[in-house]
Design a protein around this nucleic acid. Structure first.
Lengths: 263, 263
DNA sequence: CGAGCGATCCCACTATTCGGGATAATGAAA
DNA sequence: TTTCATTATCCCGAATAGTGGGATCGCTCG
């Protein structure tokens, strides 16, 4: 069944009735990740050169890939168009935008909007801060929910067992990626989360990334369910504890304002 | 061969060796375009409900689609991520951004960055103007090259026969979309283009959209070839002819600045 | 309450995709 | 210039992978 070494991760879950499709999509992901020559792609997909090449050619013909030079492949215009449409299909985004911009202007720091996607936060929007330093999060990227500010704001309504499961997942995911784990021991983490849940917003003291602190609050729909979260993040020097305390109120209010307009 | 009526346009060109893939991608496009129920999608694809549903299910499992409610489908997070990556793979974009922002700030109008994609301009970036009105162009969307300002700036180095072919294509495309054709007769168009080519930038007097005027200039790579174009657009009242004349210089200079940094 | 529609499962058929092999074309190294 | 290493394509038989008809269950509307 062409079980190649490298492609294992993505291949193992091939649902019935779609190898061609999923292979093609995985190919797009690989190209998106910067792989650009056939041999690498073939290896990653676990398909012979011929097949890989055919797929590439077809994707190019369809506008999903481009070939700026021989042997080089990049994502094509159709992908850009789809990506835009995907963003526009989330009403949340257009509703929240103006609020996020206001928040960014007031604070001068990096503002994020994220939603939960399983055990991860998915960043839907980001406004870089004006303080020079650039957070490396990006729209469209993911992080473990339990380890980021936005992420934990998404979890405020859960209970301790669920927190613990996600806490474990976060540690595991970070380790697998070779990142240092900055989360406090579970007991402390649980205590903090309970406190955050009680006051309605989250403070993050370099628990996801060294040197970065942030303040986050959940956005709720009309039924009160948490559907997203926003955060303001900055480097430690700009985020003394007393500022975080006052920012908490601001972020929470902003989140409420967004919630109020939803639907 | 399942030649359905509606899917004809997209199906006719099925390259050998990839119906499943292209079908799946076409499905994504349909969902991106807002179709949201199986019957519509089935009809559009020309596949029976079962097959359509299976494909949908697989795309959801893979993260390319989401199902916010039963019977509703929207594009998923993976598409957003890919779209972002696609944008980041164009070095042009990050180079041009700051210049476009400066231009937008100075002029207060809508700024576009576009590249040529066959007979169309493909909008790579857009900064909305601060004058209240919103242009309906969008990043990721296309227009006939010959009918827009940015588009014509991309054509400045071509010769009359090529202009004429694209001019014809533009009219044809607009008509097929049911849009009114505002282009002047070919003789006038050719004369204008020659003049624009001579002075190095393009002025557009409501030739693409009623009430919208714009000024555009080409961006060139190190070899001098036109690889992109930028424009400043606004509503007629904000774009008197004398302002356009002075804007021409500014836009041209901005385009040169971008060209200078490329590679 | 019945009609309509979405979500799934099952399964036999065959069209569809796969991938080996061979050749041009291209470009870089020798 | 020759040689090697890659990529770009074409062809074609085999069988795998995808297709689509049919039937069921559950839900929501009208």
């Amino acid at each position: 069944m062409a079980e190649s070494e490298a492609a294992k991760d993505e291949t193992e879950g091939f649902a019935l009735g779609t190898q061609t499709l999923l292979r093609g999509l995985f190919l797009l992901e690989c190209v998106g990740a910067g792989m650009s020559d056939i041999r690498t792609l073939s290896g990653r997909l676990g398909t012979p050169r011929t097949t890989t090449h055919r797929t590439l050619a077809n994707l190019i013909k369809a506008g999903y890939l481009r070939q700026p030079g021989p042997g080089r492949y990049i994502l094509g215009p159709k992908i850009i168009a789809l990506g835009k449409q995907a963003l526009e299909q989330r009403p949340l985004l257009s509703v929240a935008r103006p609020f996020l911009e206001a928040l960014a202007r007031q604070t001068g720091d990096t503002v994020h909007l994220g939603v939960r996607e399983g055990a991860e936060v998915f960043y839907l929007d980001k406004i870089p801060g004006s303080r020079g330093l650039e957070m490396r999060s990006r729209v469209g990227s993911c992080m473990p929910v339990a380890s980021t500010g936005v992420g934990r704001a998404l979890l405020l309504d859960l209970d301790a067992p669920e927190w613990e499961a996600l806490y474990a997942r976060a540690i595991e995911m970070k380790q697998r990626q070779g990142l240092s784990v900055l989360l406090p021991p579970w007991a402390d983490y649980a205590r903090d989360m309970a406190a955050h849940a009680h006051r309605g917003w989250v403070s993050d003291l370099e628990e996801n990334e060294l040197g970065v602190r942030c303040v986050a609050a959940p956005v709720r729909d009309r039924t009160g369910e948490i559907i997203a979260a926003i955060s303001v993040a900055s480097a430690v020097p700009y985020m003394p504890l007393d500022r975080m305390a006052s920012l908490g109120g601001e972020v929470l209010r902003c989140a409420h304002d967004i919630s109020a307009i939803l639907d």
